[in-house]
Design a protein around this nucleic acid. Structure first.
Lengths: 270, 270
DNA sequence: CCGACTTTGTGCATACCTTCACAAGCGGTA
DNA sequence: TACCGCTTGTGAAGGTATGCACAAAGTCGG
């Protein structure tokens, strides 16, 4: 038997003695089994949108909507309807042609794919302004992400409850995280402390990290990091402000330039 | 003179009487000038990374580093070095072959491209937990995004200073934004209020919005919206937790399955 | 001044994502 | 039952972003 590539779930074995040279980028070592996951086939961009669809659909449920077409849902989610259908096709074919999607069915399938059938305990590290806001933010709890622990380096904060949860000292991070089965760590510390905190979270077995500190975290391959960087967001917006300004001045300049050349107006094309 | 397509900045005119049918997706109307912008050529993804490079470079300046190679900078920013060089090439060719980039030169050019040579006043709407945190967050100020105004619907908050800035009532949003030349609006309100606030910001002339509320905002084409959705971030992480769990159980199952079939171990391939 | 060495900038191939367009499938209707 | 209109699901095309690999271009030591 020879290892091969294919679609969907598969279990492929290379038996001892078979030394088939592979054209594939990664040559499997001998005597190992290669398992490919269908889950991995969902593009990252689609996952992010699925979360958005889920939120919109939750609102639909509250409104008593039972069925929705891709056209309606895509409009509500602010995306192209073809993209929406493709995204949903990663989840499975749960629509009815000529009718649309059953809202509740869709919700439960997206929740399954996103792993929301299970609760994910969250630990927030760094109880400053942002940490406070996060600890008090009801959105985590209500969406199945209970905040299970808070940490700070400041001993004066230790034991003080924030949002109903007492703050632990950061030195207890490993014990507490293991004990409370924390699966997601949120870093809301100053940048200088972020890498050290991250290392401690990782050694406590946390494999997913949401980082608010403006630093690039170094982590092992098996740890997933997502970052939220307000300064970067602002700078991206700044870029667009500048672009607009450039266009405006270009338009102005062009208008000046061509004054009386027989052209009526100037249009900026993207 | 006939309209044409080309690279870089150009000013192309269609003179009256010339009815050149264009193959271009958008046919220019007669008697108009088409101006194309080089700035638009920078991909969004590259802009986001440029902001990261800028932060890393700022740290380098503080450390007294004067020159840096693409290899070093890319490692510090957590990206591929070829990608970094390509990103920098959008900014211009300011490196020296065999040596690297002058840190300060690079900083000033990236700042120019990102439009950071000009200050961008920020208004924060919704002074709840998150709004407080944002108002007190020093990162805005220090990076050239002074918080110029705060707004809330709660009259008890009106006049109360938060982070040194008195809160205005939301009804004054247009006047105050125009007066203080706000170019970026930050929405930190509950979801129900977000669209209304957005509309008011837009009518006040704000063209860039950073939205923390978990809703899809509807805006005119000439307004740029970026969203930060914590629940979505958490759900993406949840997806990865689930994927890991699936892989672990698949590995387990595969190991069980092949017990004694002459295979030594199981490897999960991405 | 020259040659060896280093690093940039970029053409090209690849992979990924998006969008179009349409066949297939389903419910409603006569 | 047979048709009709509507909507899904997806093959294929097009576009965008990524990563490799290397020529071009500069520095530095002798």
């Amino acid at each position: 038997m020879v290892a091969q590539r294919g679609e969907g779930d598969e279990v492929v074995t290379t038996t001892p003695g078979t030394s088939a040279a592979q054209a594939a980028p990664v040559v499997p070592e001998q005597d190992e089994v290669v398992v490919r996951e269908r889950a991995r086939a969902i593009p990252e961009a689609a996952v992010a949108r699925l979360a958005v669809y889920l939120r919109v659909l939750s609102g639909m449920v509250d409104q008593g909507v039972t069925t929705i077409s891709s056209e309606e849902l895509s409009a509500a989610a602010g995306v192209n309807s073809a993209k929406l259908r493709k995204d949903l096709s990663y989840v499975g074919s749960y629509g009815t042609r000529g009718v649309g999607y059953d809202v509740e069915v869709l919700v439960s399938h997206i929740e399954r794919i996103l792993g929301l059938t299970r609760k994910h305990s969250v630990a927030v590290v760094g109880i400053g302004n942002l940490g406070h806001a996060l600890a008090n933010y009801g959105g985590f709890q209500s969406r199945g992400f209970p905040v299970a622990a808070l940490f700070d380096v400041d001993e004066d904060l230790t034991g003080v409850p924030v949002g109903g949860i007492p703050v632990n000292h950061i030195d207890d991070i490993t014990t507490v995280c293991v004990e409370r089965e924390v699966s997601i760590g949120v870093i809301a510390t100053p940048p200088q402390a972020a890498q050290a905190v991250c290392d401690r979270l990782v050694s406590a077995g946390v494999q997913c990290i949401l980082n608010f500190a403006p630093v690039v975290l170094q982590v092992p391959d098996d740890v997933e990091v997502r970052k939220v960087d307000l300064a970067v967001e602002m700078q991206i917006l700044s870029f667009h402000v500048a672009r607009r300004a450039d266009e405006a001045s270009a338009e102005q300049a062009a208008n000046d330039l061509i004054n009386g050349v027989g052209v009526d107006r100037v249009v900026i094309r993207p």
